[in-house]
Design a binder for these strands. Structure first.
Length: 405
DNA sequence: TCTGGGGTCCTAGGACCC
DNA sequence: TCTGGGGTCCTAGGACCC
């Protein structure tokens, strides 16, 4: 113990990103084997009538230039033979859970990044897998997911999240690609800036104005030049990313920061009473989901998208979190009327969101009963209604009376 | 072409407090 | 009378991701 403490030599992390191939397309085919299951040219998402967009396009339709996020009407123009299937929501959630369950059998550190992808930290599992290569483990994982969940996935691996992510993209479809420790820079030389997570159309355009479109070009620049163009914080960020470096942490427990429900109307709404009716329906959905998670929210946000696609929002924070449809609706209604007073045009979308979420402290229940926006009695009524709906169906308890209050 | 729904994170100004 | 600096919170907007 007389030797000076040497800094711990960090072993390179071993991270995987498991990404389901054309996830919603796979789910739609499982949900309807005789219909969507037989269609090669398949689009999953909203219909053109409801101003829908493509949530996921089968590989066969992508050859026509179809991409997810594209208006369904536009996709059908590119690929007139395609069939449109709805998103089978509950099956997608079920499949997502099944995939994750398989992954947790390989490592306890699994972080869902979205419904169809998850990061897995395999650091420290070398001995457990008898020094099998990371790519070898990934291939067994892929086969297990296919066998147990019936879902085809691609898997990328590397010493950081960004490398795992980029490698997974390159492994598609149904492949495995691991960037070995030491090979990071070589791999990044082949990456377009546009493809780096966190670089979207706006930043890509700004970088292109400085003649930067590839990671390789960016690798040749020192920090100072980058800082002059981007400012210190974005420069440091990009300097690391083009080298395949990020903080590399995989968090298996992350709490939700926000929850929202929104709806785009088939036809723009212009009348305030119609908007209030829609607002109430959204408050009821959001309230039920909030209570199911055992959460209360301190901030309510109303989002309005006008006919010209301009999006506006208004929010309000209160001291005590709320959870009832009634409190959410009443706060939302006053926010909506503010937005409507500012600008009164047709509305194509209305939404309610909540943030500053927390589980209620068990002791402070009745303290603010009289003063608060939501009483204990309100909460008991809301929960009783939840129970009735669970037992007798969605329409067992109608929210109509809230409108008269 | 005519633009969904669910999220995360960041920035910037102003209020307010010390 | 004129003038501080720092910290935290709220609000609005926007970029980005799947």
């Amino acid at each position: 113990m007389h030797t000076p403490a040497s800094p711990p030599t960090p072993r390179p992390r071993r991270l995987l990103l498991v990404d389901c191939d054309q996830f919603f397309v796979q789910c739609a085919r499982i949900a309807d084997p005789d219909g969507a299951g037989r269609q090669a040219l398949l689009l999953v998402g909203g219909s053109p009538r409801s101003r829908g967009v493509v949530t996921s396009a089968s590989y066969e339709t992508r050859a026509f230039g179809v991409r997810s996020g594209m208006p369904t009407a536009a996709a059908l123009r590119l690929c007139p033979g395609a069939v449109v299937a709805p998103v089978p929501r509950s099956l997608c959630l079920e499949k997502s859970r099944e995939v994750r369950a398989v992954l947790r059998d390989f490592s306890p550190v699994v972080e869902p990044a979205s419904i169809d992808e998850a990061y897995i930290d395999m650091s420290g599992t070398e001995a457990l897998y008898a020094h099998e290569s990371l790519a070898g483990t990934a291939r067994r994982m892929q086969a297990d997911v296919r066998a147990r969940a019936g879902i085809a996935v691609s898997i990328g691996g590397g010493t950081s999240r960004i490398l795992a992510k980029l490698a997974a993209g390159r492994a598609k479809p149904a492949g495995v690609l691991v960037v070995e420790p030491g090979a990071e820079i070589e791999f990044m030389r082949s990456v377009l800036l546009r493809d780096i997570p966190g670089i979207g159309p706006v930043l890509a355009e700004e970088l292109a104005r400085h003649e930067l479109t590839t990671a390789e070009q960016t690798l040749g620049l020192d920090r100072v030049a980058l800082e002059q163009w981007l400012g210190p914080s974005r420069a440091r960020w990009l300097f690391d990313r083009v080298r395949g470096i990020d903080d590399g942490h995989v968090h298996s427990t992350r709490e939700a920061r926000s929850m929202s429900r929104e709806e785009t109307f088939p036809v723009d709404l212009t009348e305030d009473p119609d908007l209030q009716t829609q607002l109430l329906a959204l408050a009821v959905r959001l309230g039920a989901d909030l209570r199911r998670e055992g959460l209360r929210a301190r901030t309510i946000t109303v989002k309005l998208r006008d006919s010209d696609f301009r999006t506006r929002q208004a929010s309000k924070t209160v001291d005590e979190g709320v959870e009832t449809d009634r409190a959410i609706y009443e706060m939302a209604r006053s926010l909506l009327s503010r937005l409507r007073q500012d600008r009164r045009t047709g509305a194509r979308l209305l939404g309610i969101g909540v943030t500053k979420l927390a589980a209620p402290a068990p002791t402070q229940a009745a303290m603010f009963d009289e003063a608060g926006i939501e009483s204990d009695r309100d909460r008991r009524l809301a929960r009783a209604a939840d129970v009735a709906r669970a037992k007798f169906g969605r329409d067992a308890v109608r929210p109509g009376r809230l409108l008269d209050s």
